[in-house]
Design a protein around this nucleic acid. Sequence first.
RNA 1: CGGGUGGUAGCGCAGUUUGGUAGCGCACAGCGUUCGGGACGCUGGGGUCGCAGGUUCAAAUCCUGUCCACCCGACCA
Length: 476
Amino acid sequence: MAEEFVKEITPRAEDYSQWYVDCVLKAELADYAPVRGCMVIRPYGFAVWEKIQAILDRRFKETGHENAYFPLFIPRGFLERESEHVEGFAPELAWVTRGGGEELAEPLAVRPTSETMICSMYAKWIHSYRDLPVLINQWCNVVRWEKATRPFLRTTEFLWQEGHTAHAREEEAREEALRMLEIYRDFLEEDLGIPVIAGEKTPSEKFAGAAHSYSVEALMGDGRALQAGTSHDLGQNFSRPFDISFLDRDGQLKHVWQSSWGVSTRLIGALIMVHGDDRGLVLPPRIAPVPAVLVPIAPERAREAVLGRARQLAAALEGVHLDDRDEYTPGWKYNDWEMRGVPLRIELGPRDLEQGKAVLVRRDTGEKVPVDQEALPRAMAQMSSAVQAGIKERARNFLQERTWPVDNLDQLRFRLEERRGMFIAGWCGDDACEAAVKEATGATARNIPFAPAARSAACVVCGKAAAHTVYYARAY
RNA sequence: CGGGUGGUAGCGCAGUUUGGUAGCGCACAGCGUUCGGGACGCUGGGGUCGCAGGUUCAAAUCCUGUCCACCCGACCA
């Protein structure tokens, strides 16, 4: 795929950010809205989100969760109850102060996340250990008044899911947080083909109000890290101020233990940056809204024969979109669908017709294979699996190639100046050393991996014995 | 939120220095020829020059303000 066919998209090497924006706009995933920092998710982009939703929603339900919906507006008082939470979110809240033409007695925040609203309801609903656990998920939009926005990666309003659970025991909440992180990890790797590093956030990077935060971190094509999903063990940090208590078996009144976890439309940004190439998107077959496109090559002499057979095939084959637009040439269509990341393409022309064949083409490698028309279902299934596995493998290799252990700050700095990527380093556990890395290199602690690829003996900053191994990276 | 760049037709741009009836390529529409990696010809439609003020006989062009986007930094899914 070295040749340059698409002129619509800026090559990655020339300007990675522009390439990303070109992909978003030209593939018609999203467009800028007339409101600062907001985007419109267009049908093709929303179809990707619906695929993501469908898979995750099923997995949430398989693990006992139910969907519900809570209000968009959050009374000011709610947010103020958990001091760390309000401090963390205060700078990015949008407030409603008027309604129905009158000043509101109490301003309402547009939810940046729903912990407080949901907790207020849990306090009403939970009375006994028999009411537990409560396992609820919500698909919704949230608003955070971000200073710098980019389509999908960081927008003022975005779509996500937020799971909120309440448990009788501390370990249960912790286990839940880890269980859901594992679902995210598996989903990212197997369905999106995005390898991630699962681990725990450092205290300074954890969610405002959490006892422990966990994350899955992915590496984008430009070597910058992206937090792809988070899961929090909230401890009793919310159940105490919101007084969510239950009478336990032993007759004692206790506060529940909670978790919350979420992924957002940011995942679409990750898909673009992990798999995309200079021709545009490369979508994993499992979430591609259009799994395959059939492009007929229909010169005048064979027009009806080709189109007729193309219609038959498209109708018989599952997930095949027939592009029989008369106004575009086959070459134009190839480029168009490649830009949109469609995993497989079937070309059908007069020559194929004579031989009872079709040409099957892979989006990720460009490989073209002539296939007997009768054998298409099997060949497509095979090639589809090959694409799914191929892009995952490629992404995994990229992550490995771009991960380096470092022993000291200078090494980290020099390496990072050369090339962006993930850096494995020791950490003594002191906030000051973590801050020093950021100060000196711009890289932040992504997480403390559950399964580090390498171990470090000494803190990368102070040289004292390392209590943890940390992944550092410049992040989105 | 700081520093930088930019906003002229759907997209990409020229025109702004030196004020004087808004242009090019692609896209779009009609007709014809075409179809194995972004086809071609002819004809045609489309712009209150981001927005609001100001200067001037006259503003895309000069002045002030403002909005938006992009890039680089500080904060976040």
